[in-house]
């Protein structure tokens, strides 16, 4: 074992792993994290805490991870290259490991221009692949990036991201190979909606033998509404949402009148609730179906559920997908 990670144990025991995302709050309230942690407990094997996702300021990933750990979860600290140079990154790696965090996900990070401080200066001293390599060298060689040695190494299960749907498609499996070569132990992919395309990607990944060197967790997410489906289909770069799912989300609220057509505020509220519930049920259903489909794809070792600001859905998804209870190893 490279670490004390629960996720590593689940995967190495041959179980189909589940990870889930826990979004940290945009404030200093630890209760938000605790509440989510309690809700998610038992639904997955490890839980990612994002690091300034979409370049918006939120609670530091390592701090939310620590709170989560106090609740008995196995946290995955996400670390991006956007805000820290190699010095800060290595300090945070040491710190996270010292606090008992066992998993790290190495990312380059969303560009500042997307966030709430677009005027900020990006760092990008190193990139995600270099970060993977750096953490691996710290753990396995007990060396800092500069080559200097350390006494006690950070024992972390190292993850990296992959986007099978970004361009150039042909190159994507090779870029994954680079991450593997750099030292990634597990991969969490971008959200999969287009399963056939993901299957093609995985075929190429397996042809390269990568599935034998790294655990690949397919990213999944529940769609919240037909509007969200449309938005993800057209506005989010690197997201490939087939029309079929957009149509299903639209069909989900068939028969429920539009709230705009109702004057009475109470009835309006009621209609809104009915619509929301119908959408959520369908979104969860689609997500569970996708999990079942990707589970059949050779080389897929697990799923990573990104129910962004909808952590309540995770239990139902995992349940419908037949992945409960989670194994104890």
């Amino acid at each position: 074992m490279k670490s004390d990670s629960n996720l590593e144990k689940v995967l190495s025991a041959g179980h189909f792993a589940v990870t889930a995302e826990l979004g940290p709050p945009k404030n200093a309230d630890p209760e938000v994290v605790r509440k989510k942690a309690r809700m998610l407990k038992g639904c997955a094997d490890a839980f990612n805490v994002t690091d300034g996702q979409t370049a918006v300021v939120r609670m530091a990933s390592w701090a939310a991870c620590l709170i989560q750990k106090e609740e008995g979860l196995d946290p995955i600290v996400q670390m991006t290259c956007r805000d820290r140079n190699r010095i800060a990154l290595q300090m945070d790696v040491l710190g996270a490991a010292a606090l008992g965090i066992n998993n790290i996900l190495c990312l380059s990070g969303d560009h500042m221009s997307f966030g709430n401080h677009p005027e900020s200066k990006g760092v990008y001293d190193i990139d995600s692949i270099q970060l993977v390599k750096m953490v691996k060298d710290m753990r396995d060689e007990k060396k800092f990036q500069c080559g200097e040695e350390m006494k006690v190494e950070p024992r972390l299960f190292i993850g990296a991201a992959a986007n099978p749907f970004a361009d150039p498609f042909d190159y994507r499996p090779y870029r994954l190979a680079k991450k593997v070569a750099a030292g990634a132990d597990f991969i969490q992919t971008q959200i999969v909606f287009n399963v056939p395309k993901f299957r093609e990607y995985m075929k190429r990944v397996c042809d390269l033998g990568l599935h034998e060197k790294v655990y690949i967790l397919a990213g999944v997410a529940p769609i919240k509404s037909s509007g969200a489906a449309r938005y993800m289909a057209s506005q989010v770069p690197g997201m490939d949402v087939p029309q079929e799912f957009v149509d299903r989300m639209v069909a989900a609220i068939k028969g429920i009148p539009s709230p705009k057509s109702i004057a009475d505020p109470e009835k309006k509220k009621e209609v809104r609730r009915r619509r929301r519930e119908a959408w959520q049920a369908e979104g969860i259903k689609i997500c569970a179906e996708i999990i079942q489909q990707v589970r059949e794809i050779p080389g897929v070792a697990g799923v990573h559920i990104m129910a962004i600001e909808w952590e309540e859905a995770v239990h139902e998804i995992v349940s419908q997908a037949g992945l409960l209870p989670r194994p104890t190893v």
């Binding site: 969303d110 270099q130 986007n163 361009d167 150039p168 190159y171 870029r175 971008q190 770069p237």
Partner: peptide
């Protein structure tokens, strides 16, 4: 130095 990132579309 090891691009393209996932945002390449």
């Amino acid at each position: 130095l090891n691009g393209p990132c996932g945002g390449s579309q």
